[in-house]
Nucleic acid binder design. Structure first.
Lengths: 252, 252
DNA sequence: CCATCTTTGTGCACGCGTTCACAAAGACAT
DNA sequence: ATGTCTTTGTGAACGCGTGCACAAAGATGG
């Protein structure tokens, strides 16, 4: 693999910053693409460009994993793919359950990106008795009553919640009680979990609202610019000033 | 605005920290729930609990918006709902297009959370000619050829990409060229956009990998604990030590 | 009108993450 | 073997975000 005997065991302890962890999958994806094109090595500059980050940041990120990489050359692609995969725990298989097989749950079940890297859909669970047995993405849906049994039989530690908001906390509680310690939540609710359980949320509505904020801000600046140089209105005329359409003082 | 002559114009300029912006939708959701229950006022402590954040953080967040809130009482729910909505730009309607009507795109189109708050699905676009005209969520799918026209006719500034990874950059380029300045990307790719265009990504695969990392770490600590006090194995026996299956020091 | 009690708004300190800039390491040519 | 050139790995400075802790503001009761 690498050339010379690598230096120290590195910062290796267990202090990988959260921000770095969040970027490792990005690097891994870029590296996998390079690997498929049989590229043997890559410089931090190139890889950083592919992953859309600063090259110094990338090097620092990798430094937390150890001293892979050869000065003057770059990083060995295959080696790095392996190291990152191992660090992320993708060398083992993670059985996952999806709870709530509505539009979204079904889409997730069909999503190819699941199986691609170490994740395996162990079961689909829904509260609707009418769905029980019905196959989605080739996997028969099981009823919520079976939840605990499914978790335990399959050694599931990662659960995906795609239920309506109202059911999410209850489902979450049951998952946790059954032994799940990581949850990916697609329901638009804040989940309360005990210590030791990780929750990550994916919230379409929130993302859109953040975009709307910036969009409005951009429109505001643009409007200020137009005050000086009136440009041809591009947007429909219903577009109002983003801040000026309401009195400054509120109803109360 | 508030009661006495407020001190300075506040930090008010346009310096709302990004981290705060990202939390405003959370507060808004909690406040909306309170509003529906006709709760008139709420303290920072209560609201913070509902939103799952620290109360000091919440107060500081609100302080960026201005001095709403009454000492000794709390915040007026309705008033705050309106202020945050306005700040996020939700008092106007944002037409949105969804490109890529596969499993995920269709699920997004059907997702109720879209229309609920200021967002309106203006069009569904797909590259498959066979889908053209077919209604999804009550909206007829249009062909990619129409993309530019749709964007311009509807004054769309927010686009959602739900295509396969391979098509995402190309779609992105066309959206941007047509006038879209905010993109929500569900495709597992890094998108390159010019300055002034905002991109937010939602990536199932990345989220799972982050969870896997922590899961592995937890299992590692647990294994270390078991070395001292061997507990009954809960998970299936295929479960290996998450870090112990490889030598601590690497091959090289 | 005054005292007390609640809750906001924020100054301050701290820690994490990012970025710059450069010395050290190694490849490669001569 | 030696010098040059490329690229890593990281020390240090900076800025942002978080959380504590408290003074000021105002409500409420006597």
């Amino acid at each position: 693999m690498a050339t010379g005997r690598t230096h120290r065991p590195a910062t290796r302890s267990r202090g990988i910053p959260e921000a770095t962890v969040a970027r490792l999958p990005l690097y891994l994806r870029a590296l996998t693409a390079l690997s498929e094109r049989s590229v043997p090595t890559v410089s931090s500059e190139e890889l950083a460009a592919a992953a859309g980050v600063n090259s110094a940041k990338l090097r620092k990120d990798f430094s937390y994993l150890g001293s892979y990489g050869t000065r003057g050359v770059g990083y060995d692609v295959e080696y790095l793919v392996y190291q990152i995969s191992r660090e992320l725990g993708l060398t083992q298989d993670w059985p996952v359950v999806i709870v709530g097989i509505g539009n979204l749950g079904a889409a997730l079940a069909n999503y190819g990106g699941f199986a691609s890297r170490g994740f395996r859909v162990a079961a689909l669970i829904d509260a609707d008795p009418g769905m029980a047995g019905k196959p989605v993405a080739g996997i028969p849906v099981q009823h919520t009553d079976e939840l605990e049994k499914i978790i335990q039989d399959n050694g599931v530690s990662i659960g995906v919640i795609a239920t309506p908001a109202g059911a999410a906390q209850q489902v979450c509680d049951r998952l946790v009680a059954a032994g799940v310690t990581s949850i990916l939540n697609f329901a638009p609710t804040v989940l309360n979990v005990p210590d030791g359980v990780d929750v990550r949320k994916v919230d379409l509505s929130i993302e859109l609202q953040i975009l709307a904020f910036h969009e409005q801000r951009k429109a505001g600046e643009e409007a200020a610019a137009e005050a000086a140089v009136p440009a041809a209105a591009r947007k429909a005329s219903t577009d109002q000033g983003p801040d000026g359409d309401v009195p400054a003082v509120m109803p109360a």
